[in-house]
């Protein structure tokens, strides 16, 4: 537990040691405002809720979260510090989890900094703040899912650009897996249970429900088990590819 904490703190601090953290936060805030107010039609909708705000998060995260995740392991490989880290008495689980949690908390901080929109919507109308809270939770879980995928992709390579591209593609697959675009490929030959399974993997369908304020235990479990699965995969990849 101690070494998990130490790794977590070092990683989180390292985001803020470079301009990366500030650039990420500024871009995230600007883009989420642009999406909400211009593309989402926040004012035009006339609804006192944050649906137009959350609606764009899966797409916003698609590019921003892999940018955070890409350095997790690729940078350690590139600079050789992976050898230092892995010869310290730290268990594999503590390393993987510590790094992941630091990235997740970092994205969480960026997400919390969108709080002016809560103030705005409360000033303009009388929203359901419980639903807004659930929406934030869902958004953070969604980011966690993207990050876990990105962590695994980052472990695959020493090149951060490759890690970024792989993560975007993998996350995209998880977004569109509920779309007719993908399902039509399977429809006609695949059994129904497989279709349902593929559709149920989609971030979008799960996130849609949570962002509207409906917190289903199954959706929560979905995100958590998705993260666990990708983090286990990260640990396996690191063990297999240490020497490269």
């Amino acid at each position: 537990m101690n070494s998990l904490n130490v790794i977590f703190k070092r990683e989180l601090a390292s985001y803020f040691a470079t301009p990366l953290a500030y650039i990420f936060i500024v871009i995230f805030l600007v883009l989420s405002a642009v999406f909400t107010f211009y593309l989402g039609g926040f004012y035009e909708g006339g609804q006192a809720d944050l649906v137009p705000f959350f609606n764009f998060h899966p797409w916003l995260y698609l590019f921003l979260v892999p940018a955070v995740a890409m350095r997790l392991w690729a940078e350690e490989r590139k600079s050789g510090t992976i050898e230092l880290l892995m010869t310290l008495p730290v268990s594999r689980a503590d390393m993987v989890l510590g790094k992941f949690l630091a990235a997740w908390v970092f994205v969480g901080i960026a997400l919390l900094l969108t709080f002016p929109i809560i103030i705005t919507v409360n000033y303009l109308g009388d929203p359901d703040n419980g639903a807004i809270f659930t929406g934030y939770l869902g958004s953070w879980l969604l980011a966690g899912g993207y990050l876990a995928i990105g962590s695994c992709m980052s472990a695959l390579t020493r090149n951060q650009v490759i890690a970024f591209i792989l993560s975007v593609v993998a996350c995209f697959v998880f977004i569109v897996s509920g779309f007719p675009l993908v399902l039509d490929l399977f429809r006609g030959w695949a059994p129904q249970w497989l279709l349902d399974a593929i559709a149920s993997l989609s971030f979008l369908i799960r996130f849609d429900a949570i962002s509207k304020g409906v917190l289903d235990l199954r959706d929560l479990l979905y995100f958590i088990s998705l993260m666990v699965a990708w983090l286990v995969a990260t640990a396996i990849v690191i063990d297999l590819k240490k020497a490269d």
Binding site: S14, S79, G80, T87, P89
Partner: peptide, 16 residues
């Protein structure tokens, strides 16, 4: 690993 101190080749450290 607790018994050991190790300097890897090229002495990699967290540069930032």
């Amino acid at each position: 690993q607790r018994q050991m101190g190790y300097l890897p080749e090229g002495a990699p450290c967290y540069g930032d």
